[in-house]
Design a protein around this nucleic acid. Sequence first.
DNA 1: CTTTAATTCTACTAATTCCATAGAATTAGC
DNA 2: GCTAATTCTATGGAATTAGTAGAATTAAAG
Lengths: 156, 156
Amino acid sequence: MISKKMKYALKALIHIANHQDTNVSDGHAVEYVKAHDIAEQGHIPKKFLEQILLELKKGRIINSKQGNVGGYYFVKKPEQVTLADVYRLIDGPIALVPCASKNFYEKCDDCPSEEECSIRHALIQVRDETLKVLEKKNIHDLAKGTYIDANVSWTI
Amino acid sequence: MISKKMKYALKALIHIANHQDTNVSDGHAVEYVKAHDIAEQGHIPKKFLEQILLELKKGRIINSKQGNVGGYYFVKKPEQVTLADVYRLIDGPIALVPCASKNFYEKCDDCPSEEECSIRHALIQVRDETLKVLEKKNIHDLAKGTYIDANVSWTI
DNA sequence: CTTTAATTCTACTAATTCCATAGAATTAGC
DNA sequence: GCTAATTCTATGGAATTAGTAGAATTAAAG
């Protein structure tokens, strides 16, 4: 199960993707999306959302502009941000055990032979299949059709 | 990530599978595996293990016999107990969101249209792929070759 | 330069879940 | 009845999750 943080992060990213001016000229977007709007329309606690947006910024998925007319915008293109990227950033390892993880690998403390571990073997298969799907889907895909009207439709 | 409980449950089930007399005659095994041994050889806190075994019993995966020569044994055959079964029993839903779950379905509180939700759609795919692997692997598969020597080898 | 309205950052709290332990009750065999 | 096992319920601490508070900072606009 994903955390609420992850859920909020996805909602926020989709919101930004759907609202920012994608007309980029010199590398950065021209319109900034305010945390206030994301929070209100997504029914996300604003202060909590700010923390999450900060993490997404540290993860170099979005960036922000301060000040009166500030807000958030994508650094990468939404097409280039996969579910796997967001998952790793917010909820951590995708694998079910550390010893089956690519990016968060840790050795089991009481494992004499990883090669012979049938459980690890099985859970690596789970990881691979999960990754296939999570890496195939990006924010742009999710944004399409998800946001319908400012008043109603958050779907996750 | 799976919980320690899940890890211990798998270790326990594999241990029982490897130690119980599989020579069943009238429907129940003839040899019982003691929690004490499972705990000692698997380095599992005994009291915690008891709780876990109790849950596995309530989930009708194993059964127990009380008394001096008591212990635990499989109700189903180890071949019939899949990773998915244990996961659902111990760690709950396999899907990443409740609205994408088969066995633990819950509606999102703020979702106007499940059919149109692209996130749900993506996470259902994740669930399906995960299930394929988890349902393919059973305790018998995992037990084979995993247990090597009473003194050393727990592998997960 | 001052005001204003936004983000940034750090710290804190409440609630929940996870991990583990304690101990009394129960059961079964000798 | 004694012993050694499971059964069951309760409890406690640690870790994680979810959310809050408030001051600091930034940048545009009047």
